[in-house]
Design a protein around this nucleic acid. Structure first.
Lengths: 327, 327
DNA sequence: TGCTAGATTGTAATCGTTTTCTGTCATTGT
DNA sequence: ACAATGACAGAAAACGATTACAATCTAGCA
């Protein structure tokens, strides 16, 4: 391993001079600087990250706390976007937060490795711990969950659900059912949007039309839909928690002789590739992961670079309906 | 931030003593050790990772080089497994390898941050660079690609394709077509297995039955299938590069009035959740990501702990056919 | 009691950088 | 020609841990 010291010896200057030359500090003479840089490159020098971190308390590393849900298309897409963005900005992404972490430990773990910032995705699990982290001196951005007074970026679940309801309303639907995902802020927000739009549009919602379901679980979704179809006053349109559920349910319905959209209209969520390649194309709602990632990093970078003047804010990113053929 | 020094002062002992006590070095007296540990905990001490890494050249961090393909279910599943395994063993996972890396840079980047090891997934992109890394002093395991003399774990694409061919053969198919994925070792291996099984079973394969396709691209897959259906001597069974393609294609075929499996048998690949919740359930091949992850880490840990005696090996993990209703 | 072995603990060097402070020159103004 | 100024380079002190080595203390034994 090549050290600053080796270059210093090779060039016949001091370590400090090499360090400054390499870091572009204006101090040094121009051609000497060039010579040092040249030599460093030839010798294959790379600064030791640990030493630099130790001295500067900057690691160029951003921690990411993710539940084990990478297999859900939304989250893998979001991750891809986050990674691309972090790459662009010169940060590496490290997965932190062992499964059994709680309370202070998120914070301590981040502190321990001098992370420059932390991104928490879907912080539904340990409010106290997450808050401790988010209100600490370590820049933190929360994705898809809102806490007071800390940086949050959420795809606006409430507004999107409103959009969806209005969309199907415009297509003539007055009996709209909803199947929710796992309990949590996302589901709550969507339900709130659902009710809000229905109230505003004067659409009556019988309690039986609102069902608890699961994300990414087409079996559950199908069961729920079949239950809905048994109702004396059956809905004409069902809003599913995500595309995976909707696609799976659609296939099952189809096999049962129930036609989409003739017998029942279906709306998905996420705007996945899959939703657009099946027949009929699913009407769904696309969340703009690229935008989300950009917002996340813009807030994070601001918090990192201007820790004193940074003001936490809550940003919502609004997606859009992708019109398919199932409504 | 609490330092060793702070604890030392609080306890009235030297820094070295605290360090030894905390690391369980047998040197220290029992109750003094206990007292130090207790105090450290009370003060909320966490060792500074950078300092420790600088001194010991161990980071407890494993780098992972992944192309941007997290949205493919196979890779997200694999990643989940890798992460779970790394968590269990106490390592963190850091995404490294900026998009424009080449040659030595993978190695230098890993060296720079004192990574204890590196996992390279689908190393199809920069053979020279990857080899430089893999043959360096940094423990490296390559997933889903085979290089001579370095640690590799692959799902046995050749053997699985053979299994698939034999499976459909047993179901009476003699006209078997294959749609490949992106060019690369995975596709090559699968094709080799396909030919091998066909030859052994005495199945004739017209050149038109072998088509180049794309992974995770149902549109391309559908086009390919439709082309195949136009052939004067059409195949009775088509092997698709992955479940996503197969599911999408199936839906399109269905819409065109071509029935699966009556008119054409279809086989997917990956054994995803999706493949099992659609109707008809897709016949597919499940890759055992958990096993792959275990093998990866077993090799990695061995290479890390016994760098001198470690012998690189090539491991293949065999998956199994999931019988659906499309053959 | 005096000496030695063994058990603890402390001192200080080290890991590779960054950065402050000091010192040396050369340049400029008077 | 001399002092003041500024540009540049080097020495050395951190950052927070680990660890080889030296130093101290205790106890066991003659």
């Amino acid at each position: 391993m090549v050290r600053l010291k080796d270059i210093a010896e090779a060039c016949g200057v001091s370590i400090a001079t090499v360090s400054r030359a390499l870091n572009g500090l204006t101090n040094e003479g121009k051609e000497r600087t060039a010579f040092i840089c040249q030599t460093a490159k030839e010798m294959g020098y790379y600064p030791n990250a640990a030493a630099r971190t130790l001295k500067t308390s900057k690691s160029n590393n951003i921690g990411i706390i993710y539940e084990d849900m990478m297999t859900h298309v939304y989250f893998s897409t979001l991750f891809d976007s986050l990674r691309r963005e972090s790459e662009k900005l010169g940060y590496d992404l490290t997965f932190i937060g062992r499964g059994d972490f709680t309370g202070q430990q998120y914070y301590e773990n981040a502190r321990q490795r001098c992370l420059d910032g932390v991104i928490v995705v879907q912080a539904d699990f340990d409010a106290a711990g997450i808050m401790h982290l988010a209100t600490s001196s370590i820049p933190t951005v929360i994705v898809d969950h809102t806490y007071e007074g800390v940086d949050c970026v959420t795809s606006d679940n409430r507004a999107s659900m409103e959009q969806i309801v209005r969309h199907v309303y415009l297509h003539g639907h007055r009996k709209i059912a909803i199947i929710q995902g796992q309990k949590g802020m996302v589901s709550r927000e969507r339900l709130a949007g659902f009710y809000k739009a229905c109230v505003e549009l004067g659409v009556r919602v019988p309690v039986e039309y609102v069902r608890e379901g699961l994300f990414q679980n087409a079996v559950a979704c199908t069961e729920d839909i079949l239950e809905l179809m048994k109702l004396p006053d059956r809905p004409t349109c069902v809003l599913c928690p995500d595309d995976g559920s909707a696609v799976g349910a659609m296939a099952r319905l189809h096999a049962k002789g129930i036609k989409v959209p003739e017998d029942i209209a279906l709306v998905g969520y996420d705007g996945t590739l899959m939703s657009q390649i099946i027949t009929p194309r699913l009407t769904t709602f696309s969340q703009d992961c690229t935008r989300i990632a950009q917002e996340v990093f813009s807030m994070l970078i601001d918090a990192i670079e201007y820790p004193d003047t940074h003001i936490p804010k809550q940003v919502t990113v609004v997606g859009k309906i992708i019109e398919g053929e199932t409504v």
